[in-house]
């Protein structure tokens, strides 16, 4: 999640954040792998049912460009349009200065979203 959350930063997440509400666009969420000891941190870019696409590094949702003020550097990402399923979210990191194939980001199922990052502290060098 660099540059927003530097590598090695100390953060506090709330696992109950989505017990009663759904993840919102812009939330930084924790994504569960086999358990809760190692989690991916990603930003929610689009919600279920939305049509998503990247055109020359810009995010387009439902045929409209969606501003992303938190992204500082962009690579020329392009993807085919994709309609998200009923329990699918589009998530990406904020660091996009690399080819899309080198970035861990894309579509994630709702049950993989473990919670929300509330607060973090750390410098660029951890």
């Amino acid at each position: 999640m660099e540059p927003t959350v530097p590598n090695g930063a100390f953060g506090i997440g709330w696992m109950g954040a989505y017990w009663w509400r759904e993840p919102q666009v812009g939330d930084i969420v924790m994504i569960r792998l086999a358990g809760d000891h190692v989690l991916f941190l990603k930003r929610v870019l689009a919600q279920p049912g939305e049509l998503v696409e990247f055109r020359h590094g810009e995010l387009w949702v439902n045929g409209q460009p969606r501003p992303e003020p938190y992204v500082r550097w962009k690579w020329d990402w392009n993807s085919a349009p994709l309609r998200l399923g009923p329990d699918e979210y589009l998530v990406m990191g904020d660091r996009r200065d690399m080819p899309r194939s080198s970035h861990t980001g894309g579509v994630v199922r709702r049950d993989r979203i473990a919670g929300k990052l509330l607060w973090w502290f750390g410098t660029a060098h951890g």
Binding site: I31, V52, A80, G105, V107, V108
Partner: peptide
């Protein structure tokens, strides 16, 4: 390898 985050399809 379980694909937790599925990449978007190529253009």
């Amino acid at each position: 390898m379980v694909e937790v985050v599925r990449p978007l399809p190529d253009a």
